[in-house]
Amino acid sequence: MDKLIAENKKRNIQTDVISTYQEFFEVSEVMMNNGFFICRGHSNCNWKLLPSILRPEVRENINLIEAGLDYESYLSVKFQDSYRHYLDIQLEKDDFTSILLIMQHYGIPTRLLDWTLNPQTALFFALNYNLKDSYSTTPAAIWFMHPVVYRSVQGIPGGVYRRQDTPDVNRLSYLAFTQNKNQKDSMNPVVFYPNSIFPRIIAQESIFSVHGCNPSAFEDLEEANSFLRCIVIRKDDRTLYEFVNNVLKLDYEKYFPDIYGFAEALRRAWHK
């Protein structure tokens, strides 16, 4: 926690530390009212605002590079060629963003980063953890973005955020499918509103950002202090976690309205 707070202080990014739901409600209400209405929860406050395919720990644990292959394009093209055998979904071959959304949905690393319009959804993801691990007291974090200021700072024309089917969103998505990426295409991430391909997108009130060749996390971009805010959540005990799950009923069945969500909620029901 101290590391993130120190880094955000250097970046001049406003950071609040909370430990109760009342504090969360009060701080997030101010954020939303001031235009910071896109948010994302991290169960570990030290995680960066980077999509999985750009994270160093993902890149370091693959062996395709030694074979002269690009990991991302291998995954994307392979999935594009084969997903119709397993899913009753038919997409246009050049609908690269939708293909990435399906990949993201099934846990394949992509250049998409999930956000939500609902702070309680971000709180759920910040406080939940993998059952293979014990409850961690490592502080969590919720990041808030002001999309209007972000677009203004980045010089991106248009409204609050792009619809999925706009050219710049598809252009950045296409980078996932080509081994010969144009490194000059260093356009910063574009925030877009997705098509409702899956019920999870609706349940989680999802917004996405698609990232280009710039490997920088959102918080490391120029003028990040103008469009980002952060809440750090202390987890010294399980009180807030239990309130979110047992009182607010924010559980896997709510946010994953499918057999996976039902099974995961059932599995966690009596877990210590």
Rank of each mutant, 00 (worst) to 15 (best):
S226Y: 14
E205Y: 09
D237C: 13
P257R: 03
A203G: 03
P215T: 01
C230Q: 04
S206A: 11
K235T: 08
F262M: 12
E219H: 02
K249N: 06
E222A: 13
D220E: 11
V210T: 04
P199E: 07
C230F: 00
N182K: 13
N245Q: 11
S226A: 11
L172G: 10
E242P: 04
E253Y: 07
Q164P: 10
F218Q: 00
A265Y: 02
L221R: 03
N195V: 14
V190P: 10
S186Y: 12
K235P: 13
N195W: 09
R267C: 09
D165T: 09
V169C: 09
D165L: 10
Q204M: 07
N188H: 12
R200V: 01
S216T: 06
L250G: 05
K181T: 08
N180D: 14
D237V: 03
V232L: 04
P215N: 10
Q204T: 03
E205I: 07
I259K: 05
G261C: 03
E223T: 05
L228F: 01
D237F: 08
T166S: 15
R229Y: 01
I201S: 02
E264K: 04
C213W: 02
S209F: 06
D236H: 15
P215W: 03
N225K: 02
S206E: 13
N182T: 15
S173A: 15
Y174E: 13
P167C: 07
K254N: 08
L228Y: 01
I207W: 10
S209N: 07
S209Y: 08
L221S: 05
D220Q: 00
A224I: 03
N170V: 10
Y252T: 03
M187K: 12
Y241S: 15
V232G: 04
I202G: 11
V191R: 04
Y241F: 15
F192K: 05
P215S: 04
D185S: 15
E205G: 11
L172R: 07
N214M: 05
A217T: 06
D185T: 12
K249T: 04
A224V: 01
M187R: 15
Y174P: 09
I201K: 00
L248C: 02
Y260C: 08
D185Q: 13
K235C: 05
D236I: 11
F177P: 07
R171S: 14
I197T: 01
I207N: 05
N225I: 02
T166M: 12
R163Y: 14
I197L: 15
V190M: 10
E242I: 06
F218S: 04
I259S: 13
D185E: 15
D220A: 02
D185V: 13
I201R: 01
A176I: 05
V244C: 10
S209T: 05
F256D: 05
N180Y: 15
H211C: 08
P189C: 07
F208R: 01
Y174L: 11
H211F: 10
Y193H: 15
Y260L: 11
L221F: 10
I197E: 03
E253F: 04
F243L: 02
G212H: 07
R238A: 13
